[in-house]
Nucleic acid binder design. Structure first.
Lengths: 306, 306
DNA sequence: GTGAAAGCGCTAACAC
DNA sequence: GTGTTAGCGCTTTCAC
């Protein structure tokens, strides 16, 4: 059998309380006693039973991260950061995928697993402010990620959506582009990232006195490479002239770039493109995709290539 | 307080044993009794305490996935599949990152967290067959992923490395290419994926009677976009002519493609490129990167584009 | 078919 | 400064 604190206590000739004290480094222990315990722990290769500890203390050292989908580079990079940081704090991360599905988001939140973690990081995609009452119900500490719910009963972390896209828009306009697409709008969705980024686009236009033209607002439902490609394909069919693209995330920018290039458009000569999120991949496409790092995580990008 | 089985038992006017029986759907329960219990559970919104269950039963319903790094699309997609499948089985996945670091791989394996999970999926990067003794030590059920350790004390899952790269090599040779690079060799590493894939390359050459030329074997240490780009940059400096690239994974292929394109090489006209892993991104680069799906997961790719 | 009771391994009052 | 003891909420023999 795997050893327990009782075995350690017996070998060290102390009580289990003392062993527990050592494990939880309670300050007032005689150094020699502590050492005896430490030796016994080492000799037995004792490891605490985390289930028991969790049951007794109520804390499990587990954190849950709920994201739509790890295939999406944005969320994979988010998960990477969360795991890295959690591990540095001695926590472990459980990852659950919602697929952006409302029912799944709900069932994950309500499931017994969420009741066993010390905290939840929830990247909301389907739930909305209409579900605030339900969110208020959940007792486990929770932080919301993203912009779907900004006025909810929980703390949330968001990014400078408006400012980021505004800067991107102004950048393209500053390069002399006159017909710049807002690529990634989602008029159905109402609030959320798409709306905020569209607002950034509008402000960018306004900042240089450029009129807002609905023809240049392209909707993309679901922000993946594939949906970006599809939307651009449909937009090109409409034959509306344009010379710049402010994409509301990197993946749809990459999908769109691919379609434009296939259609014979030269980037950045014919069309300047800028993305959003600063996903790794943008550094290795041809041409490099300029992108906005809304978190200011890394050193400045190489000079704009679009 | 959150309700326990005792509360449920009291409300349903049964003993806790009966509640437990219902929860674990023990067959021999009178339907009316079961219904009373179910009603009480619903009324109280009872949820089982998973820490207690874990302590008592020894099974936690948690599985641990150890991978080098979620930023790497290959591992992100692997994690996606694992999480998806685990959730379908009612399990949750803890993800830990090793960064391919030996010490970290060791400490993760030996840490108390691994003792609380029902199983470990370990994508080995740094440990090797020399560590077999240590692996044998670990009691938690474990499956090794990848090719670092093939003869170890644990089951392992691998893919058709040799066959996949051989097919890729033959494909390029079949297109009439005569100087095809083996891109991604790692002569230092000894065994592992790189060696297997190099073997596939050799067999591909042999299959069509083409001699093996060491000049065409390009080493890439660490399979990322950046290392692929670096290695290709150095190789181009050497001025050795070539007209095809069999890359040992998609990321280094993408990094290399970018460098070749910058250098003015046209793909596929001047150089045909094929990757390995079938990462999503390969569908959206320009040109599309042909790649080998060693697992045969998806429907056939669109016709070779390189 | 259901109940009583023990105990998984740990933490934390509470004594001394 | 250390020991005793009582549970945390559950599963599971063993009776009945």
């Amino acid at each position: 059998m795997t050893p327990t604190i009782h075995d350690v206590a017996r070998l060290a000739e102390v009580s289990i309380k003392t062993v527990s004290n050592v494990l939880n480094d309670y300050p007032h222990i005689r150094p020699t006693t502590r050492q005896r315990v430490l030796d016994a722990i080492a000799a037995l290769e004792y490891q605490p039973n985390l289930s028991a500890r969790g049951l007794r203390s109520g804390r499990t050292g587990l954190v849950s991260l709920i994201i739509p989908d790890l295939r999406n580079a944005y969320f994979a990079e988010l998960a990477d950061v969360v795991v890295r940081e959690a591990e540095a704090q001695g926590l472990s991360v459980m990852i659950a995928q919602s697929n952006g599905d409302r029912e799944r988001e709900l069932s994950l939140l309500r499931g017994p697993r969420m009741q066993m973690v010390d905290g939840i990081l929830f990247s909301v995609l389907a739930l909305s402010a209409a579900d605030n009452d339900l969110l208020a119900t959940i007792k486990t500490p929770m932080v919301l990620l993203g912009e779907r719910i900004l006025d909810g009963p929980k703390d949330h972390v968001t990014m400078r959506n408006v400012e980021g896209v505004q800067a991107a828009t102004e950048h393209l306009l500053g390069l002399g582009r006159r017909r710049v697409l807002a690529f990634g709008a989602d008029l159905v969705q109402g609030a959320g990232s798409a709306a905020l980024r569209l607002e950034g686009y509008r402000r960018g236009l306004a900042a240089v006195g450029m009129p807002y033209d609905e023809d240049l607002v392209v909707e993309v439902y679901g922000w993946f490479r594939s949906t970006g490609a599809d939307s651009m394909r449909r937009f090109l069919d409409r034959g509306i002239p344009f010379d710049g693209v402010v994409a509301f995330n990197d993946l749809i920018a990459l999908g769109a770039m691919r379609v434009m290039q296939e259609a014979g458009l030269r980037i950045p000569d014919d069309v300047a493109v800028i993305g959003f999120d600063d996903v790794d991949e943008t550094r290795y496409t041809l041409p490099t995709l300029s992108t906005v790092d809304p978190a200011g995580r890394r050193s400045p990008r190489s000079p704009f290539a679009t």
